[in-house]
């Protein structure tokens, strides 16, 4: 299996007035082409930092991040911009442009990548059809529900036909039902496009619904990686056990 993302020996320390926090310590992780992998951990465990290292929104202090065969932190700026177009990303807070219509939100990355306006509009419309929002193209984000906003964000993330989709707590702001619909959509997209999906979540239910493999992160350390069945039926580390113990509370 092709390793589409590979983190080796990744360290990241955040310095603040109150001292240093080891956001990531010696993280090694391989993500394989076409899979949906979950990264789970409590708040502050380092999940977001980990996923941000993949598209260099965060630069590790040391260690190597290789994505699509390229070493991310060795790239020139222009090469990094090109690589980022191959990595879509969605967020907990949706992060849509509030002053632009749904359509313009989706054409944004296309026009940035140099596509002609007319072509970009055609592509955006077909993407919005794919996520089931074709009738909302003229609406503004403020007029949409949370689930609809995340669908727009997904269409935007898919605009440049990325090979990887990063989801940073993408369903955490949504209710259970909407969350399930978004996860279903992500699975469909994964199957149809063969896109590799990395899902960051603090809820076990999300990982259980969507992922085939899971990595457990605790205190900046990656402590357990395996198939969802393995980890959830027979957790090896105390971090995984604690996460499972909390499952009852969140459901």
């Amino acid at each position: 299996m092709e390793e589409i993302i590979k983190l080796s020996g990744v360290n990241k320390v955040f310095k603040s007035k109150n001292g240093e926090t080891n956001a990531l310590s010696d993280v090694n992780l391989s993500v394989y082409r076409g899979e949906i992998i979950g990264v789970i951990g409590f708040s502050g465990a380092g999940k977001s930092t980990l996923v941000r290292c993949i598209n260099a929104l965060e630069v590790p202090d040391d260690g190597k991040v290789t994505v699509l065969g390229q070493e991310v932190n060795e790239l020139k700026n222009s090469e990094l911009l090109k690589l980022r177009r191959k990595i879509g990303m969605i967020f907990q807070g949706f992060n849509l442009l509030q002053q632009k219509t749904v359509l313009k939100n989706v054409t944004f990355p296309l026009e940035v990548a140099g596509m002609k306006k007319k072509e970009a509009v055609w592509k955006a419309v077909s993407l919005l059809e794919e996520v089931g929002l074709a009738e909302k193209i003229k609406a503004y984000p403020a007029q949409l529900s949370g689930g609809q906003k995340q669908r727009v964000a997904i269409a935007r993330a898919l605009a440049n036909d990325p090979e990887i989709l990063l989801c940073d707590e993408a369903t955490s702001a949504l209710d259970a039902e909407t969350s399930a619909q978004i996860l279903k959509l992500l699975k469909e997209i994964n199957e149809k496009r063969g896109i590799t999906v990395v899902i960051i979540a603090h809820q076990l239910s999300v990982i259980r619904t969507a992922c085939s493999r899971v990595a457990v992160i605790d205190g900046g350390k990656l402590c357990e990686t395996g198939t969802v069945e393995e980890v959830f039926s027979d957790p090896q580390t105390s971090a995984a056990k604690r996460l499972l113990a909390f499952e009852g509370d969140e459901l």
Binding site: I87, M89, L97, P109, V112
Partner: peptide, 25 residues
Amino acid sequence: DSGVIEAALACGTPTVKIICKAIIP
């Protein structure tokens, strides 16, 4: 919102375009 800027960064937008096409609008 810093999240909006982060989203623009994540889709490979050069700085000048982030300013002109995202932040100012």
